[in-house]
Amino acid sequence: MHIPDGFVAPQVYLPAYLLAVGFTLLSFRKLKEAFEEGKVPYIASLSAFAFIVGSVAVPIPGGTSVHGLGVAPIALLFGPWVAYACFSIVLLLQVILLGEGGITTYPINLLAIGLVGGFSAYWFYRIFNRMAFAVFLSGFLSTLLSAIFMSILLGVHPYLFKDPSGKPLYFPYPLSLTIPAFLLPHLLVGFAEGILTHIAVKHLSKRLRHE
């Protein structure tokens, strides 16, 4: 979901930056353990991979195609820290190459997708480990959780920021509207993400174990 710069209050995006950048630094530190040498090239190439995974249309039942987020496949293949590091780059690339998202919404997207999406995908997978649809579910549910997180961040704006007459100063819609408005389309996105995650774990993870 892309929100233009101007709808998010500095009181929200500035702390979000602090948090997001802090996690980015932490994720880079964690990566030293994952790839003993040359983590930089791998993060770059995996980010490019994630970029493509997020831009391919996924056919879902009913004849339509939608895009997934692309974070859950990375989180399950390489772990949530790698996924977070990659998405701090992927979202930047989306701004630079596609003009999608802006400077004030970047940390919010990163927290929603990289942190909530990536880590919840990983944890959902661990929780449902023995169930038949564990992989699909982790992609699906993590997308919904990421959408809920985003809708809460936006939905609190009209309560916190209004002028004396009660007119909103930033994002105008309350939680009762934003949550369903985000959840409904993300049911489809989540379905796509579930399929992507399924393919990643069933077909790609074999390759990793060989090494």
């Binding site: 040498e37 040359g38 090239p41 791998y42 770059a44 190439s45 995996l46 490019a48 991979f49 493509i52 995974v53 391919v56 996924v58 056919p59 039942p61 004849g63 195609s65 496949p73 399929i195 992507l196 393919i199 990643a200 077909h203 790609l204 390759r207």
Partner: peptide, 30 residues
Amino acid sequence: RQELLNFLRRIMGYFFERALRDGQEVTMAM
């Protein structure tokens, strides 16, 4: 749908392999 799913699988497979290969190659070049 099945054909599109095959296509999707191939796209993911191709770029996955390529990402691993590129990562390794640049590491060695460095």
